[in-house]
Structures are given as structure tokens and as C-alpha cells.
């Protein structure tokens, strides 16, 4: 558990949380492992989990119905994906595939996360603030990549 807490401290999503708050988050996170080529979820799927990349890389691909599916971004260690399902409860907006053998993800179910936030609203505030900052960073990346 101590190793997981140490690891969670390196993830921006959890920046500002105390060790005790990180311990509670670690208790509701579950490890998943993927190999290159594995699909983690598909565009249009129902989404009820947020994913944190502990090790490895994933590719985010969007099928716009006109033309071939297009790669949107690669995400590496410490990044989160699937967070939109936590916020808007809509279907997955993209397909995410593993592109590195031995990729390790920490996965948190929406229901578990919401329950934890209701019990400790400070966790909810900090994580949601950090999630907004992460979305902002992704938008900045996307804008810069257009030029």
C-alpha cells in the first residue's frame, strides 16, 4: 500500500492530497495490465471508470465517421484518461489502445469515487480541480499541435 501511495503522489490528479486521503483512494483503485494492441475501451462504450497510467503508453483514437479513424494523442506515465465519463456520464468519446507491452493502469470506478467524495468532500474538490487542470493541459496540447 505504501508503494502505491508513493506512486499516486507522482500523479498530478492527486496533487494536494494528504497521505491519508491517498490511502483511501488507493483502497478503491484496482490494477489492470495490458499488452500492445489490447483495446482498453471503445468509442461509444458505456464508461464508468477512470484510468491512470502507472507504466507504459496508450493511444487515443477517434472515428469521426468520415475518413479513417484518427489518432488524437499518445499518453504516457502519470496521465489519466476516461475522466470524461466521471464528469458527464456519457459514452466513451474515443477508443483507447495499449501501445506498449507491460502497460500497467490503476483503475477507479465512478461509483466508488463518488462515494469517497461524498464522505470526504475535500478529496472531491482537489481531484476535480486537478482533473480540470488536466483537461486544460490537454486542450493546450491540442491547440499547439494544430500549428
Amino acid at each position: 500500500m505504501d508503494d502505491l501511495i508513493k506512486l499516486l503522489k507522482t500523479v498530478e490528479l492527486f496533487e494536494g492530497l494528504s497521505d491519508e486521503q491517498l490511502r483511501r483512494l488507493a483502497e478503491i483503485s484496482r490494477e489492470e495490465r495490458y499488452e500492445r494492441g489490447d483495446e482498453i475501451f471503445a468509442q461509444g462504450d458505456e464508461g464508468d471508470k477512470v484510468y491512470i497510467i502507472r507504466r507504459g503508453q496508450v493511444e487515443v483514437v477517434i472515428d469521426r465517421r468520415s475518413g479513417a479513424p484518427r489518432s488524437q494523442i499518445y499518453l504516457g506515465q502519470g496521465q489519466i484518461f476516461g475522466e470524461m465519463a466521471l464528469v458527464d456520464m456519457g459514452p466513451r468519446s474515443a477508443t483507447v489502445r495499449c501501445i506498449r507491452d507491460g502497460t500497467v493502469l490503476d483503475v477507479i470506478k465512478r461509483g466508488d469515487f463518488i462515494r469517497l467524495c461524498e464522505e470526504d468532500t475535500a478529496i472531491g474538490y482537489i481531484v476535480m480541480r486537478n482533473m480540470a487542470a488536466d483537461l486544460s493541459f490537454k486542450l493546450r496540447h491540442y491547440n499547439l499541435a494544430q500549428y
Binding site: E12, I73, Y74, L75, G76, Q77, Q79
Partner: peptide
């Protein structure tokens, strides 16, 4: 936390922590 943008081409770049 680094946003890597590829100059030219269609590569979408990456975000990763190091």
C-alpha cells in the same frame, strides 16, 4: 508533465510525466 508536439506530419504528439 510534458506536452510533446511533433513538427510537421500527422503525428498527434503525446503527454507524459518524467
Amino acid at each position: 508533465k510534458v506536452s510533446y508536439v511533433v513538427i510537421g506530419g500527422e503525428h498527434p504528439g503525446a503527454i507524459m510525466n518524467q
